Amino acid sequence: MRVVLAIFYTAAGIAHLLAPDQLLAITPSWVPFQRQVIFSTGLFEVAASTALLVGVQRKSAGILMALYALCVWPANFKHAIEGIDLPYISSSWWYHVPRLAFQPVIIWWALFCSSAVSWPFRPSRRNLLRH
């Protein structure tokens, strides 16, 4: 699961670095320094993916990736509500509804893959101590 998440984040990071103009279209207007934010988030996604796979900072990377996924959710809503066309991404609600609904799973996935949370698959330490 960790490798798949790192691949997705790396691909998104590369897209941020190589195609910032398309991402500007879905960036909410209240975000300051939009071009710089898109560039910085691209670097972050690549660096966090690397840390998630090989770094001693795996847990920190997962927590930051989860927070990042929460912070970009407004761009996903803008993309859906305004029906903005992006290359290789559908503007159909058949894409947007699952995409918006999946964002909490992405947040959990980053936390789980980094061992920041163990729910629901691994028993907590507290439960292990009781038995």
Rank of each mutant, 00 (worst) to 15 (best):
P32T: 10
R99I: 15
L18S: 08
A6D: 02
P20A: 10
K78I: 11
Q57I: 14
M65A: 11
V105W: 01
T27W: 04
I81G: 00
W108K: 06
G62R: 03
A66V: 04
T10P: 02
R125F: 12
G13K: 01
A66K: 00
P74S: 05
W30M: 09
S40I: 11
S91A: 13
H96N: 12
T50W: 04
Y68Q: 11
F112S: 06
S115G: 15
V3D: 04
Q34T: 12
I107T: 05
P32K: 06
L23I: 13
P123V: 15
L17F: 01
Q57T: 15
L64N: 02
I14M: 00
L24V: 14
L128W: 05
W93R: 11
P87G: 03
A11G: 06
L53S: 04
I106Q: 01
Q36V: 14
L53A: 06
W108Q: 07
V46S: 03
L129N: 06
V97G: 08
A75G: 06
P104G: 12
L70M: 07
N76T: 10
N127Y: 10
V72C: 01
N76R: 00
D85W: 04
A48V: 05
K59M: 12
T10S: 07
P123H: 09
Q103D: 09
A19F: 02
I106G: 04
A110F: 03
E82Q: 05
L17I: 08
L64T: 07
R2P: 05
R125W: 08
A66W: 00
W94E: 14
Y68T: 14
V46G: 02
L5D: 05
A110I: 09
R125H: 11
L86P: 03
Q36M: 15
I89T: 06
Y95T: 15
R99C: 13
P32F: 09
Q34A: 15
T27E: 06
L5Q: 04
Y88F: 10
Y88T: 13
C71Y: 00
E45G: 04
L18I: 12
A69N: 00
L86D: 07
I84C: 04
G62Y: 01
C71I: 06
L128M: 13
G62P: 02
P120Y: 08
T50I: 14
Q103F: 08
M65I: 12
P123N: 11
P74W: 03
G55A: 05
L86E: 07
